[in-house]
Amino acid sequence: MRRITWLVPTLYIIFLMMPIYWLINMSFKTTNEILGSFTLWPKEFTLDNYITIFTDPTWYNGYFNSLTYVVMNTVISVTVALPAAYAFSRYRFLGEKHLFFWLLTNRMAPPAVFALPFFQLYSAVNLFDTPLAVALAHTLFNVPLAVWIL
């Protein structure tokens, strides 16, 4: 009996690790090896893929964009959510509960519903295709969560 209980989490963790292992495995293989043959570990161990990522601007610009976006998003979310979270936890005021539930409903909204209007709203205010637009759009889902957790 004891051995069986020990087995369940182990099997589950193996199940979890397999795709991750495969991803890491692939990242060290040459393209030829990935496409040409099936191997459980890299035969010709290569760091070329990583060198490409860090030297080719089309690749590393992606990281800069992500970083800009993350920083902006965090700054916006925290600056507006912090005072609100304080107010919700310290004070009772008119419409408090309704306001809180309304914020939560935004968390429930399917992102796809907002895809179309965001597209047009940001085109209209000349924000389209900028990291700021992405950051702003995402605050819709993050701010309620931030208020909720803080």
């Binding site: 600056t79 004070y91 009772r92």
Partner: peptide, 23 residues
């Protein structure tokens, strides 16, 4: 314990404005 304070609305206004713009 929570105290009733209607001025707390001022703290919530930024969130309301941002979410209103976005939602």
């Amino acid at each position: 314990r929570k105290t009733t304070n209607q001025k707390a609305w001022f703290l919530v206004i930024p969130v309301v404005l941002l979410v209103a713009f976005n939602a």
